[in-house]
């Protein structure tokens, strides 16, 4: 099946062959589509609908139209809520600060774990362990008892230096340091993904570079980094998503408490969560645009040739 033939078919009309190919695609994606439609899409549409109404939950759901304009709930979030806008802003700044730390840390650890040392398996296990426990109640206990912050003199020195800064910069940086260990504990998956990528870089490339006299620093920039670049994007998106939807997140807690209190109503919580989703989406788009791979065909082409040889 050559590509040229297929393209001609695509352009002209739906031939039997393209239809058959499409059919297989739909077969493979069908279970997923069904699941998402029922448990995500439908639920999301409903929650959007709730956000534009006043909801009465008594046995069933009764929707009442809003009295003060259709965006009443959304306006209320920004005008009457004391906590939400500031929490949201803090979350955004905190995210932007944490992201590079996590990415850099996990890349460094992955590089170290990819080098030839003894007990690699053991180290890998240790670095992934926090991920396994992170969802449990243990993490909360540890944070509550203050085990997760860095009790270092240097931290105090750092804070002394930062004291002159305005509050809205000072606070996120302070948070970053006080939850540093927690951040590192959250980077297990990212380490694993980087490691998977690094192991696929052909060893012959490094050997060739060493023969040509490249230093370790140069090999890192010219070989290692380009080959894990797509994984940096993947990891960044993954990090943003987990930080944004993870359990220990103040905004989620706000939304959660608003969902189950009668004072502000369910639809108000829905409006909050849609605003939050929009903010996260904007952050993700920015991350994507910053890290998007420019078409670097040469590298891809060369790697493919190496792959073919390997196979």
């Amino acid at each position: 099946m050559s590509k040229k033939v297929k393209n001609i078919h695509d352009k002209k009309h739906l031939t039997r062959r393209t239809l058959r190919e499409w059919g297989w695609g739909y077969v493979f994606i069908a279970p997923w589509i069904v699941g998402v439609c029922i448990f995500f899409l439908y639920a999301m549409i409903q929650s959007l609908q709730f956000a534009f109404h006043r909801v009465e939950l008594s046995g069933g759901v009764i929707l009442h139209p809003l009295e003060n304009g259709i965006f009443e709930n959304f306006v209320k979030v920004f005008t009457t809520d004391v906590n939400f806008p500031t929490t949201l802003a803090n979350f955004g700044i905190g995210l932007v600060l944490q992201l590079p730390v996590i990415i850099a840390f996990s890349l460094i650890i992955a590089l170290l774990l990819n080098s030839k040392i003894r007990c690699r398996g053991l180290f890998r296990l240790i670095f992934f362990l926090p991920v396994i426990i992170a969802t449990g109640p243990v993490m909360n206990q540890m944070t509550a008892q203050g085990v997760a912050s860095v009790p270092m003199v240097s931290q105090n020195a750092m804070l002394g230096m930062l004291e002159g800064l305005p509050q809205f910069i000072y606070e996120p940086i302070n948070n970053l340091f006080s939850s540093l260990i927690l951040i590192l504990w959250n980077s297990g998956i990212q380490i694993l993904i980087f490691l998977a990528g690094l192991q696929k870089v052909p060893r012959a490339m490094y050997e060739a570079a060493t023969i040509d006299g490249a230093s370790g620093w140069e090999t890192f920039w010219k070989i290692t980094l380009p080959s894990v670049k797509s994984l940096i994007l993947l990891n960044s998106i993954y990090t943003v998503v987990t930080l944004a939807t993870g359990g220990s997140n103040e905004i989620i807690e706000l939304i959660y408490s608003a969902t189950y209190t009668a004072t502000q109503g369910y639809s108000y919580a829905m409006a909050m969560s849609w605003i939050y989703t929009a903010v996260v989406a904007v952050i993700l788009v920015i991350v994507f645009l910053l890290l998007k791979e420019k078409s670097d065909r040469k590298v891809v082409y060369e790697q493919k040739r190496v792959d073919m040889k390997g196979v």
Binding site: Y42, M44, S47, T245, T259, W274
Partner: peptide, 18 residues
């Protein structure tokens, strides 16, 4: 991708209904 970002808490009640 949209589902990826969405807060799970927000869909609990619609999910219950479904």
């Amino acid at each position: 991708n949209l589902a990826l970002m969405f807060v799970a808490t927000a869909v609990t009640i619609p999910r219950y209904l479904t």
